[in-house]
Design a protein around this nucleic acid. Structure first.
Lengths: 131, 131
DNA sequence: TCTTGACCTTCCCAATGCTGGAAGGACCAT
DNA sequence: ATGGTCCTTCCAGCATTGGGAAGGTCAAGA
């Protein structure tokens, strides 16, 4: 199949597939006589794998690792789990940061009456000297 | 003061200050005879404002809006609040997405024994055809 | 057969928000 | 004078695409 079909079947845009190929995440697809990339059902499975891993927030580099692990029948599940756990830790860090930021913002907006009057605790906070 | 001092006093790296100037977020600093950027205490307050707003996750564009609102004595607090609330909404979207991803990953890692055996529900999930 | 339109190709630019480095000038203390 | 530490500009790159131009390919219809 052509890249367009592979794209709509996998959920990875054609542009992105080409990009993944260019950075070495995907092995270059063989070409038809006219120079079109040709994808097999196996390739499609890889694309879907990538799509799903990316949708779970794995960095492209991590996806590369997962792909390697996926094709390695000798790998231990512990290796895969380690990648996943590192990713969860990363997510936890982001969650904590966003939660903390959110709390500050909610606190500030609650104190800001948000009408036509000019005085605004949000700006006051941003401008206050001691951090 | 020089850019280096302004940087360490504000928490915004010198490189970043120049970058902000280049994209128009900050008005160009006046120069000394030797061509060095010179910052006043007022400039420092602006830099700190920017630092704090960025640390709260406001996009650079939003920081620009907030700076304008900050220097506008006529603005209503409602305008500021609107920026903040849009930002909170954005954060909420990210939080929801991360929570959902986290749940999936935790579920998968729990089912993966993570030892030397090769079979791994994490890869199985990534590779599964549906979805 | 010719044409049309949808697809594909490569290439470059844009975005976000910086960060690093190179080449060279400025400043300050010894 | 000399060295070291600042500063300057410019260029390039990170990650992850999206957009679009210029042009080639392919399949179907008139």
């Amino acid at each position: 199949m052509n890249i367009g079909e592979a794209a709509s079947a996998s959920g990875v845009p054609a542009k992105t597939i080409r990009y993944y190929e260019s950075i070495g995440l995907l092995t270059p697809a063989p070409r038809s006589q006219g120079g079109y990339r040709v994808y097999s059902d196996t390739d499609l499975k890889v694309l879907k794998f990538v799509q799903r891993a990316r949708s779970l927030g794995f960095a492209v580099k991590d996806v590369g690792n997962l792909l390697k692990l996926w094709s390695d029948r000798e790998r231990s599940s512990g290796d895969v789990k380690a990648v996943a756990i590192r990713h969860i830790d990363e997510i936890d860090r982001k969650l904590a940061e966003l939660h903390s930021i959110r709390e500050t913002l909610v606190h500030l907006t609650r104190r800001c009456h948000g009408d036509d009057r000019p005085d605004c605790p949000i700006l006051d906070d941003l401008a206050r000297n001691g951090n």
